[in-house]
């Protein structure tokens, strides 16, 4: 039996927005680790961002729903813990979309490079934790706007 190519499935997955940060897609986030076929079952391997992230089960449901809409009937989602998710896996496009959305993208230095609103480098941390497990709260000392920073892990 013929089935869509894995490239085709990747394309479909690429259009699923992250439920918490809809500006980026699941593939931008780098949490889809593998797509493959075993017989007529499509296997999608997903890694969680944070072990307690409440979006994880929703993400799985959205993957399944999207693939079903494209006519796939047998879908299996595998959870992969290792290697643990890292923000290094976020795509360049994803980083740009985050910044345009007002969330400073993760930096290896451990803090945002600049304010996503005005571009000033004069920023300071308010709290290591933010509105979702993956974000921290920062503030710009020039435009005085608080903003989210996508933590680098």
């Amino acid at each position: 039996m013929s089935h869509p190519s894995t490239d085709q499935v990747w394309d479909w997955l690429d259009s699923i927005p992250d439920p918490e940060i809809p500006a980026i897609t699941l593939t931008d986030l780098g949490i889809i680790r593998d797509v493959g076929w075993e017989g007529d079952t499509c296997i999608v391997t997903v890694t969680p961002t944070y072990s307690g992230c409440p979006a994880t089960s929703l993400i799985n449901m959205e993957i399944e729903t999207a693939l079903r809409e494209h006519g796939l009937e047998r879908i299996e989602l595998k959870r992969q813990l290792s290697p643990a998710w890292t923000t290094d896996w976020m795509s360049q496009r994803g980083r740009e979309k985050l910044e345009a959305y007002g969330i400073a993208p993760p930096q290896p230095a451990g803090g945002p490079e600049k304010c996503p609103q005005c571009g000033s480098a004069r920023v300071e941390k308010l709290s290591q934790f933010g509105s979702t497990p993956c974000k921290a709260q920062w503030r710009c000392n020039d435009c005085l706007e608080p903003f989210d920073y996508f933590k680098c892990i």
Partner: peptide
């Protein structure tokens, strides 16, 4: 928020 996030991770 920090405490709630920590609890969530745990």
């Amino acid at each position: 928020i920090a405490l709630a996030n920590t609890a969530l991770d745990l």
